[in-house]
Write a protein that binds this DNA or RNA. Structure first.
Length: 368
DNA sequence: GACCCGTGGGT
DNA sequence: TACCCAAGGGT
């Protein structure tokens, strides 16, 4: 027997076993249609955009806030950009919000309010790439599209014992996923694979004994499941340094805010004025106005996708009549929630408005 | 393919 | 603490 290679998983065994498991174990999620309900493409699309690189638990409150305020694509298309960015604040990857707005306006406008019902048509829209096009086509329109996200990559790599590292393995894994995709209820199949990846076939310690596919899994048969998928080594994150200025106006306690350029890091979001963020050497001071700036003892640390940031916070109190410098705006504390403040800037304000302690400025949308 | 682009929770 | 990684897309 030694040396015998386990057979590859068979679609006629895998898909039905997965469907049976899903019927009993599907997660109840806000954007999922109940059995017998017709899925709403708008809600499917919105949830898939929010779920890009973002956990189910994080998305929940944002999804409720968006659908409550903008129940259909026409409402969203008609909303102010700033209102949408503000509602998105804290979710991250803000280009998603900018593309969400563009996409909603295309659908509500030239497409007459209807999302394309094909993978190819969906893929032409802003913010919709290969994953989202396949997911919306399958889930909202019952198209047999091969959905491939991080969960399904992991499940496929294990099922087929694929040892090629990601991301090079992606085309192979996509073919495996396509081979297993049934023509009946492909959307449920995709969601079942994602639930399996989230609940059973987890990154660290897969719960193989409870897996409905264990008998078909080549990775498990070879004792490799927990090691797959392999990944190319990732680069180390550098640390950047910066200065952030919290100016507080006497009387109402308003703070000075600006807006970041419309694209790039935190594009279009609100910010406290500050220096450049330098990777080498000390950042050049750039106070927004002349004042008695005091350095706070506590620095603000924040990690972005590709670098760590360490901000020194400087605070000053200024007279009530101080005019806002060009491009900046005085914002009273109670009005902060109306501005699209990314998390790093919430941290800066929390430090600057409550120096020794560390009081939190809650996001407009939060768990529980 | 390489690089850019947030954030929070788990370990 | 440090690292991993999540229902990825754009350039």
């Amino acid at each position: 027997m030694t040396g015998m290679s386990p057979p590859p998983p068979r679609p006629d065994r895998v898909a039905p076993a997965l469907a049976r498991w899903y019927a009993a174990n599907a997660r109840v999620l806000p954007w999922r249609a109940r059995p017998g309900e017709v899925p709403d493409p708008y809600r499917v699309w919105l949830s898939e955009i929010m779920l890009q690189q973002t956990t189910v638990a994080t998305v929940g409150p944002y999804f409720h806030a968006f659908t409550g305020r903008w129940p259909d694509v026409h409402a969203l298309a008609g909303a102010d950009d700033q209102a949408i960015l503000t509602a998105w604040a804290g979710l991250g990857y803000y280009a998603r919000a900018r593309n969400l707005i563009r996409c909603a306006r295309v659908v509500a406008g030239e497409l007459g309010g209807r999302f394309p019902d094909s993978e190819a048509g969906l893929a032409k829209l802003p913010g919709i790439g290969p994953y989202t096009a396949a997911a919306v086509a399958a889930i909202a329109f019952d198209r047999p599209a091969a959905v491939l996200d991080g969960n399904i990559e992991r499940v496929m790599a294990r099922l087929f014992a694929e040892e090629t590292p990601l991301p090079a393995a992606k085309p192979l894994l996509r073919r495996h996923a396509a081979a297993l995709t049934p023509t009946v209820r492909p959307g449920d199949h995709a969601q079942a694979l994602m639930d399996l990846g989230a609940l059973i076939c987890t990154p660290r310690r897969p719960d193989c004994p409870r897996c409905p596919l264990v008998g078909d899994c080549r990775g498990h048969a070879l004792g490799l499941a927990a090691e797959l998928p392999r990944r190319a080594p990732k680069k180390a994150k550098p640390t950047r340094l910066g200065l952030a200025y919290v100016a507080i106006r006497a009387g109402d306690g308003a703070v000075l805010l600006g807006r970041r350029p419309p694209s790039g890091l935190l594009g279009g979001m609100a910010e406290v004025p500050g220096s450049d963020w330098t990777e080498q050497g000390a950042p050049a001071p750039r106070p927004p106005l002349s004042a008695d700036w005091r350095r706070l003892s506590r620095t603000v640390r924040h990690t972005f996708t590709h670098f760590h940031l360490e901000l020194t916070v400087l605070r000053a109190s200024v007279a009530a009549a101080t005019p806002a410098p060009a491009g900046l705006l005085w914002v009273p504390p109670q009005a902060l929630a109306g501005h699209p403040l990314p998390t790093v800037m919430r941290k800066v304000l929390a430090a600057g408005l409550d120096s020794p302690g560390g009081k939190r400025i809650p996001s407009r949308v939060r768990n529980s």
